[in-house]
């Protein structure tokens, strides 16, 4: 295994494109190193993107947030502006693993590990975040939900990697929230995750709602029906109930060591409801 730590996006692209299929991107490494140790992957080349300045920055301009691919959860959690704009995204990042994992784990790593249970992805999808992807043919941008195509599978081409996440401008009276269920209070992989992003008009009616669920299908799913159940309502109990039913109905989970189909389906609705409640409360408190 060869290790390279290029200092530019172009350098990384050149290495990854030349590395062939056995090249891997290293950001926080909290998934990659476990897979290396377990012999699940045996890359010939590892390209560490943390020395590329752009991947380590959090920027905000004109209300639009950009988070570098290799920003760690701990760094994001300490960023007051990011937290104020996208509390759900920040809390989803901060839920990954322990304090120690937080010191390393990144948004891009969490996304590109391509696990359906990734904590940040439902929050990113609910936020309608976009990935900035660099590759041999230059830079392109795709919605976060288009990056993973199945467990362990990405839509990225040879030599491509995620450089940053770009967020839309946050409308007034809007907020997001993320909740996940795990059997313990910490240190588990999400059994179900729910990201909700809501915007309200000044009359208190929901004008936009995105509900995304994790660990209930081969990839994180954006549940349009769940969002629609809230739009036009005040997110009252009846609307929330309908939203929960839509969320549960969209679930296509599996039975595995972390949960059953029945359990995941039920709890998806519960978490979506609770997350929507938090998002609505936050939106109300925002200006």
């Amino acid at each position: 295994m060869r290790y390279e730590a290029p200092e530019s996006v172009e350098g990384a692209v050149a290495l990854l494109a030349g590395g062939g299929p056995r090249g891997r991107v290293l950001a926080g490494g909290t998934d990659l190193l476990v897979q290396l140790r377990a012999g699940m992957v045996a890359p010939e080349l590892v390209v560490d993107i943390k020395r590329i300045a752009e991947t380590r920055k959090i920027r905000e301009a004109d209300g639009k947030l950009v988070i570098g691919a290799a920003v760690s959860g701990a760094e994001l959690g300490e960023h007051a502006v990011a937290k104020a704009l996208w509390p759900g995204v920040v809390e989803s990042t901060e839920l990954i693993g322990s304090t120690q994992i937080q010191g390393r784990a990144s948004l891009a790593g969490n996304l590109c590990n391509a696990s359906p249970a990734a904590d940040t992805v439902p929050a990113l999808v609910a936020a309608a975040a976009t990935c900035k992807i660099a590759g041999p043919n230059g830079v392109r941008r795709i919605p976060v939900e288009d990056v993973c195509t199945g467990p362990g599978q990405l839509s990225l081409g040879d030599g491509e990697f995620v450089v940053a996440f770009e967020f839309p401008k946050r409308p007034p009276r809007s907020a997001d929230a993320y909740l996940r269920f795990i059997p313990r209070t910490e240190m588990d992989i999400a059994v179900v995750g729910a990201g909700v992003n809501l915007a309200f008009d000044d009359g208190g009616r929901c004008v936009a709602a995105r509900v995304a669920l994790g660990a209930v299908a081969p990839t994180v799913i954006l549940v349009e029906e769940a969002g629609q159940a809230l739009v036009g309502t005040t997110c009252d109990a009846a609307a929330l109930q309908e939203m929960a039913a839509a969320a549960s109905a969209a679930c296509r989970p599996i039975d595995d060591k972390r949960g059953t189909v029945e359990y995941r389906t039920k709890v998806a609705g519960v978490l979506a409801t609770r997350a929507a409640g938090i998002a609505a409360q936050r939106a109300k408190e925002s200006r």
Binding site: P183, R184, T185, E186, M187, D188, I189, D256, K257, R258
Partner: peptide, 29 residues
Amino acid sequence: ALNEEYIYDDKGRLQNPGFLDYRIPVCSD
């Protein structure tokens, strides 16, 4: 009482041989 168990697949292979999915109590529990 609450979370620890061995999970095997149908071939008799242990599915949770690690502290991630063999869930001993953590400090916040």
